[in-house]
Design a protein around this nucleic acid. Structure first.
Length: 806
DNA sequence: CGAATACCGTTTTTT
DNA sequence: ACGGTATTCG
């Protein structure tokens, strides 16, 4: 066994650490007393309770700098864990800036998963299982070149196991089983540790399937994301020598976003921090919003008892938001029980109150926010103009974004959506990666299954089953099975020929790779010769051009790596889609995605009971669920630096059905002193001056809407919540009216660019025909997406977008 | 085998 | 309403 071969290096490292001795400490400059304490309390357990916007990353990086400068540890002796690659990258960059060239490395700064992969590659052999194979039990070890499965592979595997067990897939879908296994893994429960009351899961067969799944993974030499952590815990628990080694090695441990840790991560940290207890956890119990995926707020609440003698340091001075915004946020979060408690304060100017406005329906809400954003862009009511980059709309659920997208496309307001599938989990990227995987590891059966009929090669279920049978009968991989099928003509005809070509292609690419051919060229060749590129070129869906674009990006991403193997090693964990700065855009994202971000101007729409707080959350998790929703509200408000606008709609289309709702109970919890109620025109006798064209337009619109909506709730019902009435009584200012004459400004270039009957392309809606022109907006009948009104600058002539007539 | 149709589910998401 | 998937039909 060779897993201790780094120990000499460790010794050397800690010796010269002391030699580094004290140096000037510029990184301490400008820290407030609490931050200073958090930075300088180096030994023993520390809980840094860092409220929103209190400079936690700054303190964290300064702390690392201090550890290094004080000679307490060398860069490779500090374990610094984050949840996301983004957070890890940010910390690394900041540290680099702070320390100059002094730190190269920090090899152990990374996500839980990235660090686990590193550890697991060293000690994979220590993971062993008795797996039934060919009628007897065989001990199988994990090998250090294991592959990391994506969710798709995982699901396919589970589906196979469910089918093999003769379970009805309809009633017991693989997704559900994946969820259950994930839940168990979050708790660090291996198959033999599932408590009795949970063993009934999945028709009583969950545990058995879990066990089979783990067996299969080992045979495939693969891990899912949960395993990365679980295996490392297993190794540390079962091998005292390894544990002791790492406890000595990681002299100081730092953990970011501690409130998001699950049980497995907690156990992992406890194991590693067990000796010296030099662990500093940073977090905010009020921002724990990931309970639904296994995060345990309890971890942070229990910190002081878990780590005896822990020092708790509160960061409470906020550098982000105005007093009104902080006041509103504090008022809401005060409704939660069992908090560790913090009082945020700021030296900032009072600023604007949080604004609250109700709308008749979701479309009107989107319309109002769109116009408000445009007004802020120009500068309104004596406020300086804001860039669209300074504004964000934060929603509870992704489907709320649609109303905004539709509206913004119509008025031509540039927007950007954060979230959605990450680059590497997109269909085309995973397909391409499967090809690469298969070239690098021909025995990767999951990759083979993925691409054997992608692009279509005339190899359907039947042919694929034949390959499976052949492979199993001969005890070889699917690729080899396929080769046998071709040779023996078991699969003949068109499909057989195509399969033969695929097998030959894979052989050829692999040979080229082993010859040391340039991996970028090779990647291009693989995608071209396999027909994958052509497949998307022939596809006429609106997504196709984007997918080809992504494939190009994928090949470009290869530049950063030595070879295909190296690329595949890292890609599953590291790749995200970095969006490059373009023209200013308003940002649209979920509240969850907004955690850790900040914007001068924030809109929080959809504050209606049932939507936010989410009914489902309350049904499933009761008070705990409601409290998590409340923390989400807190997170949302505290994203705002200067101006925060909360809104709700009385009526909303949900799953195609109009539904009315009451204003969110969180609205009732907003302290009056920090809130200004904007009065919607027309709702209270229309006493506010709607004038001229804008008013006419407004009433025309609501009239049109209303007539279609007989079943909507009456206004009186809707605006009757106690909190809303209380706040309404305080209403100070009429709503800003839609801006005069906007529709008279016509973008001449847009008008002249297209004519009726033109064939056009839109990146979201695909191809369509121009059926009408109104001012600067075009009415386009899209082939797939229906008829939309769109500003000309979002459209491209179809021929230019690559559509081939007929 | 591949295209047309029936059916289902529908909060939040990282690695 | 809608989009993804599973089944059915040609």
């Amino acid at each position: 066994m060779t897993h201790f071969d780094d120990s000499d290096a460790m010794q050397a490292a800690s010796l010269s650490a002391r030699a580094m001795a004290a140096r000037p400490m510029p990184y301490l400059e400008g820290l407030n007393p609490a931050q200073m304490q958090a930075v300088q309390t180096l030994d023993g357990p520390v809980l840094m309770l860092a409220g929103a916007g209190t400079g936690k990353t700054r303190a964290l990086t300064a702390r690392i700098a201090h550890l290094l400068a004080q000679g307490k540890a060398r860069p490779n002796e500090i374990l610094a864990v984050t949840f996301t690659n983004k957070a890890a990258r940010e910390m690394r960059e900041r540290l680099g800036r702070m320390m100059g060239e002094a730190v190269e490395g920090m090899p152990w700064l990374g996500t839980f998963h990235a660090i686990c992969v590193k550890l697991l590659r060293r000690h994979a052999e220590l993971i062993a299982r008795q797996v039934p194979q060919g009628g007897e039990l065989r001990e199988i070890h994990l090998k250090s070149n294991f592959t990391i499965l994506d969710t798709d592979d995982q699901l396919r595997l589970l589906k196979q196991l469910i089918q093999a067990a003769g379970i009805d897939e309809k009633r017991w879908p693989p997704r559900q089983l994946a969820g259950i296994i994930d839940h168990w893994k979050n708790r660090a429960w291996t198959p033999d540790k599932i408590p009795a009351h949970e063993a009934q899961a999945f028709d009583g067969k969950g545990v058995a399937l879990y066990r089979e799944y783990q067996d299969r993974l080992l045979v495939l030499n693969a891990c899912d994301f949960g395993d990365l952590l679980l295996h490392v815990i297993d190794i540390l628990q079962a091998n005292d020598d390894v544990l002791a080694q790492y406890r000595r090695w990681f002299r100081y441990i730092l953990v970011d976003e501690y409130q998001d840790t699950n049980v497995a991560q907690y156990l992992w940290l406890r194991l590693l921090a067990g000796g010296h207890k030099n662990i500093c956890c940073v977090g905010d119990d009020d921002q724990s919003i990931y309970g639904w995926r296994g995060a345990e707020v309890g971890n942070i609440l229990r910190f002081e008892t878990d780590f005896e003698g822990a020092e708790v340091i509160r960061l409470e001075q906020n550098y982000r938001s105005t007093p009104h915004i902080l006041g509103a946020a504090s008022g809401v979060i005060a409704g939660n029980k069992g908090r560790l408690g913090k009082t945020l304060w700021t030296e900032a100017e009072e600023g604007e109150k949080v604004r609250l406005i109700g709308h008749w329906d979701g479309d009107e809400e989107a319309r109002w926010i769109g116009e408000e954003a445009e007004a802020m862009q120009r500068g309104t009511r004596g406020l300086d103009p804001y860039s669209l980059d300074d504004m964000a709309i934060l929603v509870r659920a992704a489907h709320q974004m649609r109303a905004f997208e539709d509206r913004f496309l119509t008025i031509g307001l540039p927007y950007r959506v954060i979230g959605g599938p990450r680059f590497y989990e997109r269909l085309e990227i995973r397909d391409a990666m499967a090809y690469f995987r298969l070239v690098v590891s021909p025995e990767d059966d999951l990759a083979f299954e993925r691409i054997v009929n992608t692009p279509k090669r005339g190899l359907g279920d039947k042919a694929q089953q034949t390959i499976q049978v052949m492979a199993r009968a001969n005890g070889v991989s699917l690729l080899e099975g396929a080769r046998l099928c071709v040779r023996s003509k078991t699969i003949g005809g068109k499909g057989g020929k195509a399969l033969g070509e695929l097998v030959d292609g894979l052989d050829r690419w692999r040979a080229e790779m082993l010859d040391g051919r340039d991996h970028i060229r090779l990647a291009e060749e693989i995608l071209d010769e396999s027909g994958y590129t052509a497949f998307w070129q022939n596809e006429k869906t609106p997504e196709a051009p984007g997918r080809l674009e992504n494939l190009k990006e994928l090949v470009k991403a290869l530049e950063g790596f030595e070879n295909l193997q190296g690329f595949l090693e890292h890609v599953a964990l590291i790749m995200d889609n970095e969006t490059q700065a373009e023209e200013p855009k308003i940002t649209l994202m979920t509240l969850h995605a907004a955690k850790g971000l900040e914007f001068p101007v924030v809109f929080l729409p959809g504050w209606e009971d049932g939507l936010f707080p989410s009914q489902r959350s309350m049904d499933e998790s009761g008070v705990k669920g409601l409290e998590e929703e409340r923390r989400l509200a807190y997170v949302g408000i505290t994203r705002a630096e200067e101006l925060c606008t909360i809104s709700f709609a009385a009526n909303r289309r949900v799953y195609g059905q109009w539904q009315s709702a009451l204003p969110s109970r969180f609205i009732d919890e907003l302290p009056e002193a920090h809130v200004e109620v904007l009065t919607p025109p027309g709702l209270y006798g229309g006493g506010f001056g709607a004038t001229g064209m804008a008013a006419a337009q407004q009433s025309a619109m609501s009239g049109g809407v209303e007539s279609n909506l007989q079943d909507k709730a009456s206004k009186a019902d809707v605006y009757n919540s106690p909190g809303w009435r209380r706040l309404q009584a305080n209403a100070s200012r009429p709503i800003r009216q839609p801006t005069e004459a906007k529709n008279l400004t016509i973008d001449a270039s847009a008008v002249s660019a297209f004519g009726e009957g033109d064939r056009v392309f839109h990146t979201k809606f695909g191809y369509g025909d121009v059926t009408g022109i109104e001012g600067d907006k075009l009415e386009v009948a899209f082939d797939k997406a229906g008829t939309k009104k769109i500003v000309g600058r979002f459209l491209v002539p179809a021929a230019q977008a690559g559509e081939v007539p007929f």
